[in-house]
Design a protein around this nucleic acid. Structure first.
Lengths: 228, 228
DNA sequence: CAAAAAACTTAGGCCAAACTAAATTAGCGC
DNA sequence: GCGCTAATTTAGTTTGGCCTAAGTTTTTTG
């Protein structure tokens, strides 16, 4: 509850920590020190140290040895970074010839450098999009974000058809592969077969059959047009 | 001559120092500690410290108590930052609705964050412009820059006409005033009178007469269509 | 040309943010 | 419920980049 009324500018590092914690919190659980460390590629002691500082600033709630949760203030900052990141990705793809596999790193640096004015100008130029090129929802200016619940392609039963809506990876190689395979948001896919023991799926997309690994299929988030 | 072969990434601070020194060197003289300190709004001891580090890295040549000069390597970095800054300004004005009085600060932050790829994409979108919105020349990819010699409006004799080509300030208030007065690059101005003792000038621009302070007139860089 | 002023550097300190090594706590198997 | 392991925190160090105070060197000026 230690309010952080003195609006000191947050550092790049702080913004990255808060964004990482926001992402890890998604699962409902508090974010653990080691998960944060792994995501940010830092040592656990470095994370412990930062957690102490951020708690003191009232940006997160820390239960020692248990993990951290964002406070309202911390969440506000995190969502602001998510909005920035996704809008920048959308802008780079929409106006500067970037492809979805190359935008992540660029956005990762720019999100810390752009002003609020520039972000809103980009949003305007794009027509206030609700999703980025990977199908990730873009929070609005007030931080509202509709996290739709999708079904991973891996869980679509054989015989059913689903539409890819979101791709949950930022690895360039995977994204290039998916693009090349025609598995991008908006595409309809029919699952024809599941191999057992978490094996690959056989699917039909764009009129032709292909086989896709289970792990990748878990990152393809879909809606089933008929279900619900 | 201490080559900096190990291409460690340069920090934001280092990039700012090199750019500042490049600008100060423009006058032919070495850049002094205090001039650098003033330009970057830092204390002189901080600058002394950084000068030592940058000299050790081979980015500049330091003669104690005399000043610093960029090495070829230092100049390369500085010009790269200038190219980035000016292209970003041009892009923001050209594509995102910025005006020439608001672009400086935004570019100042972005120039450290954008990749070479993004810069070249912006340059392409703009058609590889040679000048930014203030008329400052944009170095090309190889660092070549044509620093044209202009005559300040303040030095144009009464009765003569000149064309504004470049505006040498980044202060938003001054830029807004100039815009409002119709004194922007490309505009022809006739000087009708000089007040003595470094006083104001009377000029005609866009068909109407106005008075402009000496100091501002020194920042309006012109060519005389007839002279030379 | 000597003394005062200005400019510059050195000395020493601070803070953010990272690290390694060592100590502590939590969770689990038996 | 004891003790092992894994997770976490504490302790202590490093680096970059800034600061103030104090000492040097250069420049200016009476």
């Amino acid at each position: 509850m230690t309010a952080q009324l003195t609006r000191e500018p947050l550092t790049r590092s702080v913004e990255d920590y808060l964004k990482a914690i926001y992402r890890l919190e998604g699962a409902g659980q508090p974010a653990s020190t080691s998960d944060i460390a792994e995501l940010l590629e830092l040592s656990p002691p470095s994370v412990s140290g930062m957690i102490r500082r951020l708690s003191e600033q009232g940006l997160l709630e820390h239960v020692p040895y248990r993990g951290v949760l964002l406070t309202a203030g911390g969440r506000r900052v995190a969502i602001r970074m998510v909005r920035r990141h996704r809008l920048i990705e959308a802008y780079l793809v929409g106006f500067l010839g970037y492809t979805w596999d190359t935008v992540h790193d660029e956005a990762e640096r720019l999100e810390h450098a752009v002003s609020d004015v520039l972000i809103e100008r980009m949003a305007l130029a794009l027509g206030n999009p609700r999703f980025d090129p990977h199908g990730d929802p873009i929070p609005d200016r007030d931080g509202a974000i509709d996290e739709l619940v999708y079904t991973p392609l891996a869980e679509i039963p054989a015989g059913e058809t689903a539409e890819i809506r979101r791709v949950d990876t930022s690895q360039p190689e995977r994204l290039r592969y998916l693009e090349h395979s025609g598995l991008t948001p908006g595409i309809r896919v029919t699952v024809t077969q599941h191999q057992p023991f978490r094996g690959p799926l056989t699917i039909v997309a764009g009129g032709h059959e292909q086989v896709i690994g289970r792990e990748l299929a878990e990152q393809l988030l879909c809606v089933r047009p008929d279900a619900k």
